[in-house]
Design a binder for these strands. Structure first.
Lengths: 235, 235
DNA sequence: GCAACAAAAATCGTATACGATTTGAAAAAA
DNA sequence: TTTTTTCAAATCGTATACGATTTTTGTTGC
């Protein structure tokens, strides 16, 4: 019963995605340190391959590198939070308009399925899942356009916004955006492009308003348990 | 009179931008080989620092890496060309709507200035400049939103589209999109958001239609002269 | 007991080194 | 002459090594 686990040579992109997913899903908290040697051991490679990957994540703005100090999961400032949200209002207006024009019954079904899962996650008090699913809804919306480039852009924006939410959400986070998503689906089903666009803008504004931008949570400490599912033994 | 030139330690991001600009401005043609050692010599660093930068450009889709063969300036397929153009229609619809809502007189002036420069470049038969300015118009439009995230996204899309144009433009490239930009400005000046959005979609469709997707130009050969302005002497 | 300083440990950033793979050319066969 | 085969040169991908900087620890003084 040797450790085995990942061992069979992950590609750079796979490692990138692994770290990226860990951040998006909240298994790596904002501010957490991403040591090169440490990550290298986790994935069974040398830090020579980790470094470039960290820089790539820096381009996606979900990791920051402080010279001679190392890489950390990004902790977006209030200003950045506002900018990203504003960007989403601009970009996703185009997305929901296109989606409204192209949506087919099975697309609406997929969206409603996600909302249902969101409800389930909320009622089960699984904050992590609810978090992830909220973003997934917007990604699925982008997928309706059938355009991979658009889907990737939305995914990046959602990832950054997830960090914002992780940092600034109010302790007693009420189910803020649930009805928001449901009514978005209704507008799309109506085929009313203008109404859908309007609803999207307000939905994103609502999400922003539900945050407490006054104080961001302090950086936390531990790493490593975030990759438990990989089965890589430490040391 | 030693070589001097760049010598004073460029940062990774500066090198990245240098290569990126060279590609966008057409000094590096699609398909051109980007050797690691070669680029390292150009910038006076080891290939250890070049490699990650090439991977970052890969994420931007303006460079492709073929395993064990090296990095090349991307040569987007017809399918990718269509996808990027469709993405621009979706994204830039949101952008021009936001820009129309926010545009101030000085913004319109900046846009008209770019169109004027485009005319000048065309009449001077400076194809390269005209090319760059066409993209610059859309970037300036994005800048009107005052949102850096949006501006970066549009810049990336424009960069990819520039490669598409470089590959598929017709030999006798007529001034296709000149009036397109002028009428976009008029719609913005009117404050008619829907008309502006409609004009943008058709403008991008026109650009696409002006291409000859039947045959893409073959890969060309030489490198190195693209970075002459840096003053780095080759060996 | 706490603050300040000094030394040691850990970590980062880059260059160099080396095995693996591909490319190109030279030589041999048809 | 053309094709195939073989071998050398060039290039890529990764690990290791080493100087530079930061962080931590341990000690001293107050």
């Amino acid at each position: 019963m040797t450790v085995s686990g990942v061992k069979q040579a992950l590609t750079d992109s796979e490692i990138l995605r692994e770290i990226s997913d860990a951040i998006i899903e909240g298994r790596l908290a904002p501010g957490e340190k991403l040591g090169q040697d440490e990550l290298g051991k986790v994935f069974g490679v040398s830090k020579t391959r980790i470094r470039p990957i960290l820089h790539r994540l820096t381009d996606q703005k979900i990791v920051v590198i402080e010279p001679m100090r190392g890489a950390f999961v990004a902790r977006p400032s209030v200003e950045e939070a506002r900018t990203v949200n504003a960007a989403r209002q601009i970009i996703e207006e185009g997305v929901i308009r296109a989606a409204t024009r192209m949506a087919r019954p099975k697309d609406l079904k997929a969206l409603r399925e996600i909302v249902a899962q969101e409800h389930e996650a909320r009622s089960s008090h699984m904050a992590g899942s609810a978090h992830r699913l909220t973003g997934e809804f917007h990604c699925e919306l982008a997928r309706i356009t059938g355009n991979e480039v658009v889907a990737d852009i939305v995914r990046d924006l959602v990832a950054r916004d997830n960090l914002v939410v992780a940092l600034y959400q109010r302790p007693n986070a009420a189910g803020c955006s649930l009805d928001g998503h449901a009514s978005l689906i209704d507008r799309i089903a109506d085929g009313d492009e203008d109404a859908a666009a309007h609803a999207m803008r307000h939905h994103l504004q609502d999400v922003m308003a539900s945050l407490d931008l006054g104080q961001r949570k302090p950086p936390s400490k531990p790493l490593a348990s975030a990759f438990a599912h990989l089965g890589a033994g430490p040391k």
